[in-house]
Write a protein that binds this DNA or RNA. Structure first.
Lengths: 154, 154
DNA sequence: TCCTTATTGATAATGATTCTCAATAGAGTA
DNA sequence: TACTCTATTGAGAATCATTATCAATAAGGA
C-alpha cells in the first residue's frame, strides 16, 4: 500500500499508476465533498466533469484507489458498495438509517472506542492468531426524519 | 417483530406464517449448526433434506425469518449475504479473513463492549436523534492459516 | 514519427438476488 | 372424502451491481 497521493502528481511511469484524467477527476470528487458514494453516484458526478467516462472506468478506478489505500469500501446492507476517503485524521463510524438509507458519520467517542478496540485487537490477535488491520462499526436504526414520518403514519 | 419461534409450532392460520416443510428444514439447519451461511450454503443443505426445494424459496424463507427476528443478515464484503441465528444469549462480533473469507465469531469482551456501546448509543440518540436498534462490529485481517501461507510465499 | 505499454470505453458476461405466475398443498367445511 | 379458499411453492425469467473482454487510444521515450 502506497502512503498517499504521491503518484498522482508524478508523470506516467513515475513509479505508480498513471494519473490519468478520469483518475484525477474521481479523486477530486472525493476530496471536495466527503461522503459515502456508490459507484453510480461517482459515475454521475464524473459524467458532468468528463462526459466520455465509462462505467467500467469508474469501477476500475474505485478499486485501484482502494488498493492504493486512498479510498475505503463499505457495505451497509442495501446491495451497493459505498466508497469513502480513507483519511487517518478522520477516523469515524457510521449510523445507518434502515428506512431511507441515510448514512451519518460520527467521530464522537473515538477516543474511548479506540482505546477499547486497541485492547480488543491485541487480545484477539493473541487468542485467535488473527492479524487485524481494520474494523468497521455500524449502528443501525431510524434517523430523525424517518422516526417522524413513522409516527405520522399511525 | 414476533418474539420467537412460536408460530413454527402452530397450525396454519394460527396467527403467524405457516410452518411449511421448507421453513422447518431451513430453521433446523440454523439451529443444529451455528454458522454464517450464504443463501447458496442453505440451498445445498436443504436440497439434501428436501430435494424439491427451489432457490427462490430459500431466499424468501431467509428474508421471512429475518423479518420475524429469527435470523440476522450480514454482509462481510465478498458480495454475498450471510445469515445467522439471532440468539440474544449469544451476542458476538466477527473476525473476517480478507484472504480466505473465513469468519470467526467471538464473544470475548462483550461485557466491556456492551457497556461502551450502550453509552454510545444513548449519546448518539441524543445528539443525532437517531433510534438505534442494533449494531455490527467487524474486524478485518488475516487468519492464522493465511498468515502462514503468505510467509511461505516469500 | 514510430514503438511500447497501460488505460479507456462499449459491451458482453457474470453472479447474487428478486420477480412472475401457474401449480400445489394445507386446513376448514360440507 | 370431495370442495373451497388462500398462501406457498418451484421453475425460470428478469433485474441489479459488478467484472471481464477486447479493440481503440493516449502517453512517454527512442
Amino acid at each position: 500500500m502506497r502512503s498517499g497521493y504521491g503518484w498522482l502528481h508524478q508523470n506516467f511511469r513515475g513509479g505508480g499508476p498513471p494519473p490519468t484524467l478520469p483518475r484525477r477527476y474521481i479523486i477530486n470528487i472525493f476530496t471536495t465533498q466527503r461522503g459515502h458514494l456508490s459507484a453510480e453516484d461517482v459515475f454521475t458526478k464524473v459524467q458532468k466533469l468528463y462526459p466520455r467516462t465509462g462505467f467500467a472506468t469508474v469501477y476500475r478506478t474505485l478499486d485501484l484507489l482502494r488498493r492504493e489505500g486512498i479510498l475505503r469500501r463499505f457495505e451497509f446492507g442495501d446491495g451497493r458498495a459505498r466508497y469513502e476517503l480513507a483519511d487517518q485524521n478522520f477516523h469515524h463510524h457510521h449510523l445507518v438509517c434502515r428506512q431511507c438509507g441515510r448514512i451519518i458519520n460520527y467521530s464522537d467517542f473515538t477516543k474511548e472506542e479506540e482505546e477499547l478496540f486497541r485492547r480488543i485487537e491485541k487480545a484477539l490477535k493473541k487468542k485467535y492468531d488473527f492479524a487485524i488491520d481494520s474494523h468497521q462499526l455500524h449502528f443501525y436504526g431510524l434517523c430523525a426524519r424517518c422516526q417522524k414520518s413513522k409516527k405520522e403514519e399511525l
